[in-house]
């Protein structure tokens, strides 16, 4: 048994956390707390940005002008969330360039759900309804996270995400009220996105590598399994309302627990996709890399222009 020796600073820090005080950028914090936040916040930011790809893939093919405008605004919101989160992460003393480099090097991760392809228009509905729906359950909980800038960014992000979730659900609802083909399209999207959405909450609590310390520091406020259950309970009812069937033969209401029981999640698939063997892992990262490289001359031009003009104004002065 190892004996944990805590410095006085650490004791004070934990007391503040226990008293529900927010930790702010200039406050002292354990290095591990800082590193955990950087990992989590950058993963969150990268997810927002990579998540623009599957949806952006349908921007030019949106079926009506109204849908096109909504999707344009939504994808923009996701990019905006990425920006907030990168900025919030920068308060921890790391630059956006370093964070993006970690993504390109494969050190930093993003939500593995975005490694699944958006094949049909119904997938845009399913992504809004389920993927954003799962994200909100997690993010509502994170509004109470202990790090101030992260908690505050969640407040705003949640407002926008709840709009995204409703628009996704509304796409699904419209499809289920449509032709036979449209209904089938909606059911197929649910079939493909249901299990990966459940995996978004991460491994079972017992298997979760980072959970215990994060709960103690109140970076995480609720466990993976608690959050997943909340999402399952709300989604089953929503699917029922629009006449879609959750693709899980073991799904059953458990009166004792007051929750739905589900079948076993295929964790080998989860591990496989995280490891890089999902349907779109290579494309997502290669795309981000390529676009970053293609934009280099633009960023160089901005820097050169600014340098020239700074020089000129110094000379003039």
């Amino acid at each position: 048994m190892s004996v944990e020796v805590k410095s006085e600073q650490e004791v004070v820090f934990q007391k503040r956390i226990d008293a529900e005080e927010k930790i702010e950028p200039k406050d002292w914090m354990p290095e591990k707390y800082r590193q955990t936040l950087i990992r989590q916040m950058s993963q969150h930011a990268h997810s927002e940005v990579i998540g623009m790809q599957p949806e952006g893939n349908w921007l030019t093919r949106a079926p009506t002008l109204h849908r096109k405008c909504i999707l344009l605004a939504k994808v923009q919101d996701e990019g905006g969330h990425g920006l907030y989160l990168y900025s919030a992460a920068e308060t921890l003393g790391i630059s956006r360039d370093e964070l993006v480099k970690a993504l390109h090097d494969g050190v930093a991760k993003y939500a593995s759900i975005f490694n699944y392809p958006a094949l049909t228009w119904a997938d845009i509905g399913a992504i809004g309804w389920l993927v954003d729906g799962a994200a909100i359950v997690n993010q509502i909980s994170l509004q109470r996270t202990s790090y101030g800038p992260y908690a505050r960014s969640m407040v705003r992000i949640c407002k926008e995400e709840s709009f995204h979730q409703r628009q996704g659900y509304q796409i699904m609802m419209t499809l289920t009220q449509g032709s036979h083909e449209q209904k089938a399209m909606a059911q197929d999207a649910l079939d493909r996105f249901w299990w990966p959405s459940l995996m978004m909450f991460g491994p079972h609590d017992a298997e979760s590598a980072h959970s215990a310390q994060s709960m103690k520091w109140k970076i995480k406020r609720q466990s993976n399994d608690e959050l997943r259950q909340k999402f399952i309970d709300q989604s089953v009812k929503q699917a029922d309302v629009i006449g879609l069937k959750i693709p899980d033969p073991a799904l059953k209401w458990n009166t004792d627990r007051g929750h739905y029981d589900i079948g076993e999640i295929d964790w080998s698939e989860f591990a496989r996709v995280i490891k890089g063997d999902g349907p779109c892992n290579r494309q997502r990262l290669q795309h981000h890399n390529r676009i970053h490289a293609e934009g280099a001359w633009v960023r160089d031009a901005v820097a050169a222009y600014e340098a020239k003009h700074k020089q000129r104004s110094t000379k003039a002065a």
Binding site: L59, T60, L72, I291, G295
Partner: peptide
Amino acid sequence: SQWSSNGPFLEEDLALTNVALDYVGRA
């Protein structure tokens, strides 16, 4: 709108799609 996820940096990506949104709204 074809610039979404293709901009030279994130801020510009958003700005271009914002202008796209103005034009589609106008249409």
